[in-house]
């Protein structure tokens, strides 16, 4: 996702002099390095200083530029949270805050580097759009949208590099603010977003192997949530499942449950999220998700 973001940003920025990138001591490699060489003034590294990264991005946007602020998700959102809230969202500026390593992607670095409640926090801030692509192709579409929109601030939650392409054959295109069907099905509808989509599709495979017809939808835009799309899923399917790499409080699962309650939905509804806990565990991304209670095997077993 990181590399695809860099490629798309470079392609757009070479033709749009308003596009800038402000980073805090971390850089997407590849195309962004090329961008920095060709347009050194439009690449700013604030160093290990995230508050000024966001503050500067706000000031640049007010004076007509279109900045992306880019660093590890925890430091992009948590450290300068009040700058994101006041400088970007209160002032409604079209700045994209890119958080790398969303969820527990940085699986060996400890909870200081786990953006495990980032989506819930970002969703709580008025005016902040929250986009969490599930693969490089969605990252490309989302980056393109962020770079060309004027409506306001965005938190773009990416994983890191090397995620598999999952949506090449999706029957629906990526559209901001709309649920996207990745696989059609009739019995069960699974809603998911972000890098955990890989596991979600494995869950779907297991359910399919057990004879269920499984629909998988990408909720790449967590805010503004496609409420009509969620309502339709709750109405059209006997069983709706949410799988997300985010803390339970304020995440998508809780939001879908609220909509189900408000609309009197009758379907079975299950939600799987990260635990409401800090874990002291190191290993692969899958190891950490498992420590949080999330694995395809365990989820499928709970659903069958």
């Amino acid at each position: 996702m990181r590399n695809r973001f860099a490629d798309v940003f470079y392609d757009l920025a070479k033709d749009d002099p308003r596009l800038c990138i402000v980073v805090a001591d971390i850089s997407p490699a590849g195309s962004i390095a090329r961008f920095r060489e060709e347009f050194p003034e439009r690449f700013v590294n604030t160093g290990v200083a995230e508050q000024i990264m966001i503050g500067m991005a706000a000031g640049m946007a007010q004076r007509g530029l279109k900045p992306f602020a880019y660093t590890i998700a925890t430091f992009a959102l948590y450290r300068p949270f009040e700058m994101v809230r006041d400088d970007l969202c209160y002032q409604n500026l079209p700045v994209t805050v890119v958080g790398i390593g969303g969820g527990v992607t940085y699986s060996t670095l400890g909870a200081t580097h786990h953006a495990q409640e980032d989506v819930a926090l970002a969703c709580a801030v008025p005016g902040l759009s929250v986009i969490a692509p599930c693969d490089p192709l969605e990252a490309e579409a989302a980056t393109r949208w962020c770079a060309t929109q004027e409506q306001g601030p965005v938190y773009l939650r990416l994983a890191k590099a090397g995620e598999p392409v999952l949506t090449a054959d999706a029957p629906e295109p990526w559209e901001f603010g709309r649920l996207r069907t990745l696989r059609p099905g009739r019995d069960v509808c699974v809603l998911s977003y972000g890098a955990i989509m890989d596991m979600t599709l494995e869950v779907a495979d297991r359910l399919a192997a057990a004879g269920r017809s499984v629909c998988v939808k990408s909720v790449h835009t967590v805010k503004p949530l496609d409420r009509a799309g969620v309502e339709a899923a709750l109405k059209d399917f006997a069983h709706v499942v949410v799988i997300e790499e985010c803390a339970p409080n304020g995440g998508l699962g809780m939001q879908v449950k609220a909509i189900a309650q408000e609309t009197g939905a009758h379907c079975r509804l299950d939600a799987f999220s990260l635990a409401d806990a800090f874990i002291h565990c190191y290993g692969s991304h899958a190891d950490l998700l498992a420590e949080h209670g999330l694995s395809a095997e365990r989820i499928a077993a709970a659903l069958l």
Binding site: Q51, G59, P67
Partner: peptide
């Protein structure tokens, strides 16, 4: 911080 961004 905002002023720095504006000046830049």
């Amino acid at each position: 911080g905002i002023a720095v961004g504006q000046a830049y």
